[in-house]
Amino acid sequence: MDHAHRPGPWISAAAWAVAIYLLVPITIVIPVSLTDQRFLSLPQEALSLRHYATVLGSPEWLNSIWQSFLIAVASTAIAVVAGTLCAIGCWRLSRKSTELIRALMLLPIIIPSIVYAIGLYRYFANLDLLDRFLGVALAHGVTGIPYVVITVSTALAAFDPRLEQAARGMGASLSQTLRWVILPRIAPGIVSGAIFAFIHSWDELVIVLFIASRDVFTLPRRIWDGINENLDPAMAAVAVLLVVFTLLLLLLDLALRKRRDA
């Protein structure tokens, strides 16, 4: 790397500008969350943790956090099982039709979520799934599948198909091969997919706005309502918590990848 080309001043400046553009909106909520005022603003006289105290002491906020967490866990489970099985199936069969299926699985991240949400609203009304935990978990689970399909397919692309042949040649059934050979090899891909599916559900708003109203009130939904109704700095505190949590998940993903590549 000693003799690699160094970027010129213009390129450096542009790169920094993009980085700052990406980071500033996230970092701005940190001082706002520490404000000593009663409305959304920068701290005037002193830093204060009172809004964090409000959030962590409020049954509504805690309930929403808990609900979001449960929904994210349930939808991650759905996305991981369905996405992994789909990716393995497509990989094993590996025909033209499976390419199509894999592309189809990516639809939830290609189609605007508002279009998806309208469709779900129509169907869920008939199935009595509106404003239900199961409904939201299903919707988030299905829209989380693409993340798992992508990461697991990537892991499978690096999987040596001869390992599967070797296992079967030694008498292993399909399920033994899956449990003892394929899954352990692609576990890092599955974990990555799970983390992304979790984050997807954790901060999803548009679908929730359509298919949930009173009983299911996720964290993003409460932030949204809070911004519409009053400008309580508690939202900034929640936003910081949200960012920190997501950041931790991404760091976990990074650490797992590092360990796998080591």
């Binding site: 001869r162 390992l163 042949q165 079967r168 040649g169 030694m170 008498g171 292993a172 352990p184 090899r185």
Partner: peptide
């Protein structure tokens, strides 16, 4: 018969040892 029912030992090109 499928391969898992044939009871043949096989040494693959590149060995195909399970790395984990």
């Amino acid at each position: 018969l499928p391969p898992e029912r044939r009871d043949f030992g096989m040494v693959f090109q590149g060995y195909a040892l399970f790395p984990h």
